[in-house]
Design a binder for these strands. Structure first.
Length: 582
RNA sequence: CGGGGUAUAGCUCAGUCUGGUAGAGCGUUGCGUUUGGGACGCAAAAGUCGGGGGUUCGAAUCCCUCUGCCCCGACCA
């Protein structure tokens, strides 16, 4: 690097560095074949992130600009809602995690480390332990409640399978908030405030999203909502009604009981050969019946041996719902082929409720329970039963809601029909209750002078995931289409051939300066690239507005403007441009 | 943690089956010509072929082993 070039990079203090020649923009044309989803590909191509190791990413200057935009909006809205920012260590001592029992329970996602004295620590995947420890030391009186602490900080979860870039990274940026209350009523109030705050945040970010009821999972608790960014590539299925504001994660959504009664049995119960028909579709096709007339049976590991779960052939088992059954240990794992073979003497594909060993409870979904004369597995390789009826031919231990809702089901709130969409979970609000405060003995004195265990809520936002989710929702063949609130810059000033056209260079600089002085976040592309490369870069990195300064335009006395999603550019005046950017 | 794949230049990949001088495109550097949708010419730099061991006169190539990374199954912001 020559001395001149080096000096050119030094700028007087107070002038923002937004000339691309002095920024590190590092777009690439090619991208590793293993980047599977649009956001991962585009973030790599735009040079926003670089992979350091599996699930670990460096945020480039460009990527960080976007990340900070998200972070700042989250911070502003949390502050507006009365939450108080703080910062906790990312490394946490084992003792604290022993107090809640999560050192063992958290599982492999907890990254455990030792210091030079062989003392054990973990890299924080979440901060309930640390904040509750803070609270038990700091909060003494009910008069200090309610209070809502938050931080924006790096988390580490040793995911079994990191993927999709920063969408599911091991290290990621998260905003986590924890509120403390004397009463459940107070918690419910703050929960409402956080719900509204999250709605404001995702609205400001310019994302299409839905708040959905969520399963509270193994942690328990009273209420929980997820905030899902809508995108076809989302990993979550979300359900919403067209006749009310009901919306839920499919794991949570209740499938209403059918209104019909079970018809009387008419058919003769008999076994038929179905040599290689293992799937419901195969069997239904082979026997000439519809999948709705079949019963699908899955064996899962229960508290005391295997448990059979039955749903109608066209339905899917919901393992989260199943996990709530008394017969199951909180979470449900499918039995292995060996276990199935040992318990029933047959292989998966031919299991059915009729003739199962009496030790296996048969739990039947509400829709499967109203079937009569149905087809089910014969509990012998290569055979199925036809004309099966509950009670007469097949044992039925209990009826429960076991299935995923499907498009067209009635809404559980009684209003409207359910539809299904895909979403990316970017936020989660949760009424935790007292379990952490209890475990860590976090109490305050109430107005009677008695110690009371505090009640807690927690509220998370995946800051870095939002960046990926936004791209997933908004992109085209040319690249990213940022919402204005997330864009690294709002407008790019592109100069055509500035090196050889001093008047273009001067006019571009002047326009850039006037935009900056007008408080508009602009970037000047003074790299002197050929137009094709310059335009391709600006579209790839998703700048919402573009204005071109060229000899042609200067001669005509107009600027050439194009919004990111416009098909064509158009000539406008300087004043019009300022008006557009409001 | 099971199953599958992969590792060659900064990036994307050939070359491996059939052992015999290390390749291409993109990118980078220099010079020149170019400047409205990823320009062109000439020249150049750049690789302990993931690590270790073995077979062989000779290994990117065959064998063993370790490691990283990716994909399909479990949790979550």
């Amino acid at each position: 690097m020559t001395a001149g070039r080096y000096n050119a990079r030094l700028q007087p203090a107070g002038i923002t560095r937004m000339r691309l020649s002095q920024f590190h923009l590092a777009t690439v044309k090619e991208v590793p074949a293993d980047a599977e989803i649009a956001s991962h590909r585009l973030m790599l191509r735009a040079g926003m992130i670089r992979k350091l190791a599996s699930g670990l990413y460096t945020w480039s200057p460009l990527g960080l600009r976007v990340l900070r935009k998200v972070e700042n909006i989250v911070r502003e809205e949390m502050n507006r809602a009365g939450a108080i920012e703080m910062l906790m260590p990312s490394i946490q001592p084992r003792e604290l995690w022993d107090e809640t029992g999560r050192w063992e329970k958290f599982g492999g996602q907890l990254l455990k480390i030792k210091d030079r004295k062989q003392q054990e620590f973990c890299y924080g995947p979440t901060h309930e332990e640390v904040i509750t420890d803070f609270a038990r030391n700091e909060l003494k009186s009910y008069k200090q409640l309610p209070v809502n602490f938050y931080q924006i900080q790096t988390k580490f979860r040793d995911e079994i399978r990191p993927r999709f870039g920063v969408m599911r990274a091991r290290e990621f940026l998260m905003k986590d908030a924890y509120s403390f209350h004397l009463t459940q009523e107070s918690l419910a109030e703050t929960y409402q405030v956080m719900y509204q705050t999250y709605t404001r945040i995702f609205t400001r970010l310019g994302l299409s999203f839905r708040a959905v009821q969520a399963d509270t999972g193994a942690i328990g608790g009273n209420a929980s909502h997820e905030f899902q960014v809508l995108a076809d590539s989302g990993e979550d299925a979300i359900v919403f009604s067209d006749g009310s504001d009901y919306a839920a994660n499919i794991e949570k959504a209740e499938a209403l009981a059918p209104t019909m009664e079970r018809p009387a049995a008419t058919a003769v119960f008999s076994k038929v050969d179905t040599p290689s028909q293992k799937t419901i579709e195969d069997v239904a096709g082979f026997l000439g019946v519809s999948p709705q007339q079949c019963v699908k049976t899955l064996l899962v590991r229960g508290n005391g041996g295997l448990v059979a779960l039955c749903v109608r052939g066209d339905h899917e088992i919901n393992l989260v719902k199943a996990g709530k059954l008394d017969e199951l240990p909180g979470e449900s794992a499918l039995a292995s082929e060996d276990e199935i073979l040992a318990a029933t003497g047959t292989r998966p594909g031919f299991i059915g409720p009729a003739g199962l060993p009496p030790s296996i409870p048969v739990i039947v979904d509400r829709d499967a329970a109203v079937l009569a004369d149905f087809v089910c597995g014969g509990n012998a390789d290569g055979s199925h039963y036809i004309g099966t009826n509950w009670g007469r031919d097949a044992r039925l231990t209990r009826i429960a809601d076991l299935r995923n809702v499907v498009e067209g089901d009635h809404s559980p709130d009684g209003h409207g029909i359910l539809h299904i969409a895909r979403g990316i979970e970017v936020g989660h609000v949760f009424q935790l209750g007292q379990q952490y405060a209890e475990a860590l003995k976090a109490t305050v004195v109430d107005d009677q002078g008695k110690a009371q265990v505090m009640t807690m809520g927690c509220y998370g936002i995946g800051v870095s995931r939002i960046v990926a989710a936004a791209i997933e929702q908004r992109h085209d063949a040319a690249g990213i289409i940022w919402p204005e609130a997330m864009a690294p810059w709002r407008i790019a000033v592109c100069m055509i051939n500035p090196r050889n056209a001093p008047e273009v260079s001067a006019a571009g600089e002047a326009l850039y300066q006037s935009l900056i002085e007008g408080g508009i976040e602009a970037v000047l592309d003074d790299r002197g690239l050929r137009p094709g490369g310059m335009f391709a870069d600006m579209e790839l990195i998703g700048i919402p507005h573009r204005v071109v300064v060229s000899e042609r335009g200067l001669a005509a006395g107009t600027l050439e403007y194009r919004a990111r999603q416009d098909a064509e550019s158009r000539a406008i005046s300087h004043d019009e441009l300022l008006g557009l950017l409001g």
